[in-house]
């Protein structure tokens, strides 16, 4: 229900404008100048991809639901707007965020089980024992002011489909786009229903002809054009021809009727494009090494 998001701590306390967010991060880095210059880190989106991958690794053997992984990603992102990452052991934060997220999303995991799994995955750098996760949980909750309820676009998307149903393949693609948006700052910038609309728009415009789950930047650019300039015969020169054109016309009508904030959707789309552009540079090993360097250098793994 919209009213519950409207009054939520997520909207009131954890949604920023881009300049606000940049400012928060700049202040944090400024307070740790030496540390920051001593230990350079990859692009935040690549780091996020690294965290997402580690969450997957941890969650898979425990069969953790996607929604809990998503909540954990948001907890990590929020936490690092409050605490300089180079002051923490990120793998401990990852494990703890998942532990906490599982409780909030009603699929709890025993702390010992999770700790054992973390130890197995990261013998040198992960949390050494359950009590470390327990302690980090206090830090995580305190930094988030106990504001742990997260509204996700998944539920919005289900609701939105009562007025604009997606085909199975569109739905899958939209679902994947929502999964991807957790790698960006979008969850701190926009309301979940807006993210859901963006994902639906992209899914319809892109048509998942390719089975790859990565969406090509070029295609997204087309989608963007279609949106901002509906008269420019969207899709006419793309695959699908007339059918897709009708579908997109319907989409545009629906958007107009739902009085969605087109500008914000365009903004979300752009964030996603640049995510897909930077994605190629992702290298797990580089991320790991850069993180390990400060963790080891500062003795944070102990």
């Amino acid at each position: 229900m919209a009213s519950s998001y409207w009054d939520s701590t997520q909207r009131r306390n954890w949604t920023y404008t881009k300049p606000e967010l940049a400012d928060i991060r700049k202040k944090l880095e400024d307070s740790e100048r030496v540390l920051v210059s001593q230990y350079p880190l990859p692009d935040r989106r690549l780091l996020s991809q690294y965290f997402a991958q580690q969450l997957q690794k941890l969650g898979k053997p425990l069969s953790v639901r996607q929604q809990a992984l998503a909540t954990a990603q948001i907890y990590i992102r929020r936490f690092y707007t409050k605490v300089e990452i180079r002051r923490t052991n990120p793998l401990l934060v990852v494990a703890t965020a998942l532990y906490l997220a599982c409780k909030m999303e009603e699929c709890p995991q025993h702390i010992r089980l999770l700790s054992a799994e973390a130890n197995h995955n990261w013998p040198d750098f992960g949390p050494k024992e359950p009590s470390r996760i327990g302690e980090c949980e206090f830090a995580l909750i305190a930094e988030m002011n106990s504001q742990l309820i997260i509204h996700h676009p998944y539920r919005s998307m289900t609701e939105l489909q009562s007025s604009f149903p997606l085909s199975q393949e569109e739905n899958n693609l939209a679902w994947n786009i929502i999964n991807d948006h957790y790698l960006t700052d979008l969850p701190l910038l926009h309301a979940p229903h807006l993210i859901a609309i963006t994902a639906m728009v992209l899914a319809v415009v892109l048509r998942p002809q390719q089975s790859t789950h990565q969406v090509h930047a070029a295609n997204v650019a087309n989608a963007l054009q279609a949106l901002s300039n509906p008269k420019a015969a969207p899709g006419a020169n793309g695959p699908g021809g007339a059918n897709i054109q009708i579908r997109i016309q319907k989409l545009i009508t629906w958007l107009a009727e739902s009085s969605a904030d087109i500008e914000a959707i365009v903004d979300c789309t752009q964030e996603l494009i640049s995510l897909y552009e930077v994605w190629d540079q992702y290298n797990e090993k580089v991320c790991r090494e850069q993180i390990n360097r400060f963790v080891k250098g500062k003795g944070l793994e102990k």
């Binding site: 909030m104 009590s131 470390r132 909750i141």
Partner: peptide, 21 residues
Amino acid sequence: VQYTGISQSAIREMALCTELT
């Protein structure tokens, strides 16, 4: 003396208490 993890119902109560006004 060690941290053992917060019970799920305490977590729920904390989260709901901060959320509701």
